[in-house]
């Protein structure tokens, strides 16, 4: 199987506490997987390990067979992994458009400019450096225009273009969640990690979100890994689900299989004959 992202025997300690233990994950290209488990099970820690915020104590993490361990978070983004956050981390006082444009920034920072040379991919940008921006060279203006145009196109696709000049923090909660997803998409990822995207949403917004995730997967052809508590979302859109508790995988499989797995039910609801606490 063609694996996009693979985690092998990943273990992570916080001091003496084992937060993630011997975790394995094979994420095929184009997959839409779910990662569930009770609070404190280590789900977000796994995201933090994948995105380079933490370095795993043991194990390997590979994106398209290339190890991403010990890479800086921003380098991992450049390699093609983007994420959203459980607690929103929006650039609040900037405009919605600027939130997106910042994600398209990184191609611009890479030292030498490449002139008008054609790139393989249409998404590649003309590269400029600090001095281009000091002197506002032609190249630079071109790159800026390209960034803006791409950002606007993306906002149109996600249907946030009507608010693109608004200050981000003035948006309603549901749109902020959407904006964070759009911001992650703007980095042109191969793998998108969504950390509880439905948290705090109302049923109507959740319906929209599910449509959006499907839309993104089909339209952008990217692989998605999703942490979610909302069972309707997980069961509704994920093809495959991994359940963890206390840092260990306790079950995995298709949504129906997982939903009927006694260990999963136990982890979420406690043992049936469990003592009252």
């Amino acid at each position: 199987m063609d694996s996009m992202l693979s985690l092998e025997k990943v273990t992570h300690y916080f001091g003496g506490l084992k937060a993630v233990s011997n975790f394995n994950l094979e994420l095929p290209d184009g997959a839409l997987y779910g990662l569930i488990g009770p609070n404190g099970a280590g789900k977000t820690t796994i995201f933090n390990l994948i995105t380079g915020i933490y370095t795993p104590t043991e194990g390997s993490i590979k994106l398209m067979n290339e190890s991403i361990i010990r890479k800086k978070p921003y380098q991992i983004v450049h390699m093609g992994i983007a994420r959203t956050f459980q607690n929103l981390r929006i650039f609040g006082s900037l405009s919605v458009l600027d939130n997106i444009r910042i994600s398209r920034h990184y191609t611009v920072g890479k030292s030498k400019h490449t002139g008008n040379r054609k790139h393989k991919e249409s998404s590649d940008l003309v590269q400029t450096n600090l001095f281009d921006s000091f002197f506002r060279t032609r190249n630079y203006l071109k790159a800026e225009r390209q960034i803006t145009d791409e950002a606007i196109d993306l906002l149109k696709l996600i249907k946030l273009d009507d608010v693109m000049h608004e200050q981000a923090k003035s948006l309603p909660y549901g749109k902020l969640r959407k904006l964070e997803i759009a911001r992650a998409l703007a980095t042109h990822p191969s793998v998108l990690l969504l950390d509880e995207p439905a948290a705090g949403m109302n049923p109507a917004e959740i319906g929209e979100l599910m449509d959006l995730i499907h839309f993104i997967r089909d339209n952008f052809k990217i692989t998605i890994l999703l942490i979610e508590h909302h069972m309707k979302v997980v069961m509704g859109i994920c093809e495959y689900i991994k359940v963890i508790d206390f840092g260990e995988t306790i079950a995995e499989g298709k949504p129906v299989e997982v939903a009927n797995n006694p260990r999963v039910i136990e982890a979420y609801l406690g043992k049936e004959e469990g003592k009252c606490s």
Partner: peptide
């Protein structure tokens, strides 16, 4: 410029800035 926006994003939320690809260091 795009560099200026990168600086602003650090002010707004440093971790998010790093995780949309800005070399915050």
């Amino acid at each position: 410029s795009t560099h200026g926006r990168a600086l602003l994003s650090i002010r707004e939320n440093e971790l998010a800035s790093e995780l949309v690809g800005v070399n915050t260091v």
